[in-house]
């Protein structure tokens, strides 16, 4: 009797659960679909009939974005900057975070590193331009890499710290007994286990870099060095923006992010199972 009762409740719960999840999924999916549909429209149909299907498919928008904005080059620039940033960011923050959580706990440094999470990016625009000018890195993609790395350090260390703290201390001790050096412990044991944390950081940092407009705007000037989001932003008009064109640009820029996300999600799971086997 009790068993039956539970199963009835369980079934109801399952139905409600899936209903809720599906409604949320539809709501979450909708903006992407809206951007996709709008990317085939002109302004009259976006404003006149914002939620309807396009009367005629304006594939024109995509062609124009691709040719007008030199998207191929901008895309490569963005990819280059984001990936280099990710590599540097993950290396240096995981190393720093490892020391601060497991080897040398230092309250001052922890607070120091968490300051950055609070700084609005607008506050950095003019000082950063001045600094890179002094360094001779005006209009240089590496300036962008350094700036993206710096602005993402705080929250990356924050997340990494959470993951490193969750790894049992015994692992270090066992490894020390086995005769591993500190750096060996880090690279062979801790770093692999922290993969889920790294994947989270990588996803979020990639997103931040990929979508950044302001730093790219002030640090880069040459057209052939522009990042994708800069090129897409140039599609806005002075008075009237052709939103169909803009949406086509967004679709082009969203796709790599989604691919990146899917890839890293796989890594999360791979990392987790690896951790479970070893642990």
């Amino acid at each position: 009797m009790k068993f039956l009762h539970k199963s009835w409740k369980y079934q109801l719960f399952t139905i409600v659960k899936y209903l809720f999840l599906t409604i949320m999924a539809v709501i979450s999916l909708y903006p992407f679909i809206w951007v996709l549909i709008s990317s085939f429209k002109d302004n009259n149909s976006i404003f006149g009939d914002p939620f309807g299907l396009p009367k005629e498919l304006l594939i024109e928008n995509y062609r124009e974005v691709w040719e007008g904005a030199d998207v191929g080059r901008n895309f490569l620039n963005s990819m280059f900057v984001c990936l280099v940033t990710l590599v540097i960011l993950i290396m240096i923050t995981s190393m720093g975070s490892y020391i601060l959580t497991r080897v040398w706990k230092n309250g001052f440094l922890s607070i120091y590193f968490s300051l950055g999470i609070m700084i609005p990016i607008h506050a950095l625009l003019i000082p950063s331009v001045l600094i890179f000018k002094r360094m001779g890195l005006t209009d240089n993609l590496f300036a962008l890499v350094l700036m993206y790395t710096a602005t993402n350090i705080s929250f990356s260390m924050f997340i990494m710290n959470g993951f490193f703290e969750g790894i049992p201390r015994e692992m270090d001790e066992a490894a020390t007994i086995d005769g591993c050096s500190r750096s060996q412990i880090f690279f062979r044991i801790i770093f692999p286990i922290a993969k889920p944390g790294i994947a989270t950081v990588a996803t979020l940092a990639f997103l931040n870099c990929w979508n950044d407009l302001l730093l790219g705007l002030v640090l880069i000037s040459s057209p052939h060095k522009k990042t994708l989001s800069l090129a897409i932003s140039a599609l806005k008009g002075s008075y009237a923006t052709r939103y169909g064109l803009l949406c086509a640009g967004f679709v082009i820029s969203i796709i790599p992010v989604v691919i990146m996300y899917l890839l890293f999600q796989k890594q999360v799971i791979a990392g987790m199972t690896a951790g479970a086997v070893k642990g």
Binding site: I88, M91, I92, T93, M95, G96, Y98, I99, L100, V103, W104, L109, Y112, F113, L115, G116, I119, A123, L124, P127, S128, I131, L146, M147, T149, A150, T151, I153, S154, M157, S181, R182, S183, F186
Partner: peptide, 22 residues
């Protein structure tokens, strides 16, 4: 040495490009 070696890169980039602008 390990501490310094591991912390230095992140400290430098952070200080130069985030803290000094602040």
């Amino acid at each position: 040495p390990v501490c310094i070696g591991f912390l230095l890169p992140v400290f430098l980039i952070y200080t130069l490009f985030l803290f000094i602008p602040l």
